[in-house]
């Protein structure tokens, strides 16, 4: 049962709600209590829904929960205004996925828990 764990991460998965270090400016998703720079002075920050691909792969042997989605691309996306996320690239042909490509974040169903569990929604990206 994934419900309590997923529920806790909803602000991050639904709205990219992270935080930013007031000392060094680094942006985090999920939010951190302590910045690697040592500062504990962080402020709420919602990450941008636009960014570009830093690296990616195409998953051809997925875990069970994703087996009917294969093949799919997963990318590290650097967001405008700071912060990086890792997410699937959707609505895009695999040949189009490249390092440096501009993407927009979209709200999608990541997976459903089994036949009868909840639908887990969150962020993915797609080539603009």
């Amino acid at each position: 049962m994934i419900v309590p764990r997923h529920y806790k991460e909803m602000p991050q998965r639904y709205r990219l709600q992270g935080n930013r270090c007031k000392a060094c400016g680094k942006v985090f998703l999920p939010p951190r209590l302590v910045c690697p720079c040592g500062s504990e002075d962080l402020e709420d920050y919602s990450l941008s829904w636009k960014g570009k691909i830093l690296s990616y792969t195409i998953i051809r042997t997925p875990p069970t929960q994703f087996k009917y989605q294969k093949p799919y691309a997963v990318a590290i996306v650097e967001l405008e205004g700071g912060g990086t996320v890792q997410c699937q690239v959707t609505d895009t042909s695999l040949e189009e996925v490249e390092i440096g490509k501009e993407v927009e974040i979209v709200f999608r169903k990541i997976f459903s828990e089994g036949e009868a569990g909840i639908h887990c929604y969150g962020y993915k990206c797609r080539v603009v």
């Binding site: 989605q69 699937q88 959707t90 979209v106 709200f107 999608r108 169903k109 990541i110 639908h119 929604y121």
Partner: peptide, 16 residues
């Protein structure tokens, strides 16, 4: 709909 789309994600995007 793509495999990751449903009424909720469509409604979300239109609402946004």
């Amino acid at each position: 709909p793509n495999q990751d789309e449903d009424t909720v994600t469509i409604a979300y995007q239109a609402a946004k």
